[in-house]
Design a binder for these strands. Structure first.
Length: 291
DNA sequence: AGCTTACCTTGTGC
DNA sequence: AGCACAAGGTAAG
């Protein structure tokens, strides 16, 4: 199937899948392959045309955020030179609408890990507990269901290199499995209420909650602050904070306190507005790409 | 009430 | 070899 992209609606498949928001996409030749909704989605971009197999157009549009009015979003978040450069470099990067359950587990696992290690953990979980799906003579694995992970033993979960995160993942699986519809409803709440619900999961703090809200629940105002964004704010936006706060944050070795996190994240939401999450993702990807 | 500290595991890169 | 560090969270004090 194909989608012709509107010239007024930029899209960059590569940037969207490489910016670190999703962990289970692989590129083979010029095709991207990922497991979404228990199906293999195979997709590539040729200029303004998207070519894909195995799923419908509506699904592709929803998953890749093609319904977001990116031109309008740019107009609202393009506030300064730094974000302007990031937008220019990654023009067409979009926020995905991932599966909330997979996103929950992904970002519980993401604490204190780099992206390659996160990918490996999730791949381990899928191989060990996910349903096998064959496609193009290759074996893929669906992301494990809450039910399947809820019944997995700590011993088996540990074999996936989750480390201390095994207990968080197991508890999350049990909680979601006990009431799947309640979990599914979280995305329909406001940003604040949805965040409060997510914080009820052990292993989910402010940062992880913001990632889940942004990457799977369409809460585009969420502004996750990780080490990279922390660095970006200190480098380019420190004039928005007091001298004391800046020097305190820049001296920190350990993680941010709740209050410090909220101050940085609230800055992002206030400064960039209701699409702050888009700004975050551009700044994050740009900062990492300049390493 | 809000902050600091220790601890939670594993892998990678210098 | 040894160490720092990686899209952090929790519980104790």
């Amino acid at each position: 199937m194909r989608i012709k992209l509107d010239a007024s609606q930029p899209f960059d498949l590569e940037a969207t899948l490489c910016c670190g928001q999703a962990f289970r996409w692989e590129k083979q030749d010029d095709w991207w392959k990922g497991v979404v909704a228990n199906k293999i989605l195979k997709i590539r971009q040729k200029g303004a045309e998207l070519q894909f197999e195995n799923v419908g157009s509506d699904f592709v549009k929803a998953y890749f955020g093609l319904n977001d009015d990116l031109v309008s979003i740019y107009a609202q978040i393009n506030k300064d030179r730094q974000i302007g450069q990031a937008i220019q470099k990654f023009d067409g990067l979009r926020i995905l609408r991932q599966d909330p359950w997979e996103c929950l587990v992904s970002y519980i696992c993401a604490t204190y890990k780099n992206i390659p290690a996160i990918k490996r953990m999730l791949q381990n979980l899928a191989q060990r507990f996910g349903e096998k799906i064959s496609f193009d003579n290759q074996g893929y694995y669906a992301f494990p269901t809450p039910e399947r992970l809820a019944e997995a033993s700590i011993t088996d979960l540990k074999k996936c290199s989750l480390g201390y995160r095994v207990h968080y993942v197991q508890q999350a699986a049990k909680k979601v499995n006990e009431n799947e519809s309640e979990f599914a409803q979280i995305r329909n709440l406001t940003y604040e209420k949805a965040k409060a619900k997510l914080l009820g999961f052990s292993g989910v703090g402010l940062k992880v909650a913001d990632c889940i809200l942004l990457f799977s629940m369409g809460k585009l105002e969420a502004f996750p602050v990780d080490r990279w964004i922390d660095r970006v704010i200190l480098r380019y936006y420190s004039n928005h904070f007091s001298q004391e706060f800046v020097s305190k944050i820049s001296r920190k070795q350990s993680s941010l306190s709740k209050a410090e996190y909220e101050r940085l994240s609230a800055f992002g939401r206030n400064y960039f507005g209701k699409y702050a999450g888009y700004a975050q993702e551009y700044l994050y990807h740009y900062e990492r790409s300049c390493q």
